[in-house]
Amino acid sequence: MSAALEVRLQHALPGFDLDAALSLGREIGVLFGPSGAGKSLMLRLIAGLMRPREGEVRLNGRILSGTAWVPPQERRIGYVFQHHALFPHMSVLENVVYGARGLPREKALAEARRLIQEFRLEGLEARRPKSISGGQKQRVAFARALIAKPELLLLDEPFSALDGPTRVHMRDCLARLMRSLGIPVLLVTHDLAEARSLAERMFVLIGGRVLQHGRPEEIVQEPASEAVRELTRAG
């Protein structure tokens, strides 16, 4: 089976050079690396929020970047941002419904209510984002990203804005959900414990290069280089 997501990207920013490739099936991939490694840049390039200098992004056989260019609006990619990026002028329900662009209003409302229930957000429909907790905000962001049934889910440090206990709890809840989606999920983190507990496939990104990829346990037990060993040393 060929991979659902195939990415090969080259991009240059002042003082930084990205040259990385990865391929991912319908599984959870974790892009793991220190800050400044180019993780978020890679997500933005895959999403089409930035144009790569060179390379190709292919999702379920469709070329998104490369010989063709699909604008980000038409990529069918769900994106959960680091700080959730909920719209403060909309209620929880409106935020989720906003994700269902193109769906008839009635259908969008029904689907949003279903997701709100699935994410255990009942009772919060009319609340504004500033009056709900961090964990709830994150669930709203997930519901909003999933309502349009994306073919790929990108998560930029989705748990970093949460505090310790909430973080572990949310991670476990969402891991189950993400596995049940049946689409490729690519998550960015610099937290080793998070990477190990979520990843079915892990990509170690350092200095704009994928230095190693594989199952997280393999990487931790048999790091291919000193840099990877250093980064994956437990504790």
């Binding site: 929020l49 994106y79 941002f81 994700g99 193109g102 990203a145 349009a148």
Partner: peptide, 8 residues
């Protein structure tokens, strides 16, 4: 960006 990724 968020609105863009939601198709707008």
């Amino acid at each position: 960006d968020s609105s863009t990724m939601l198709g707008y």
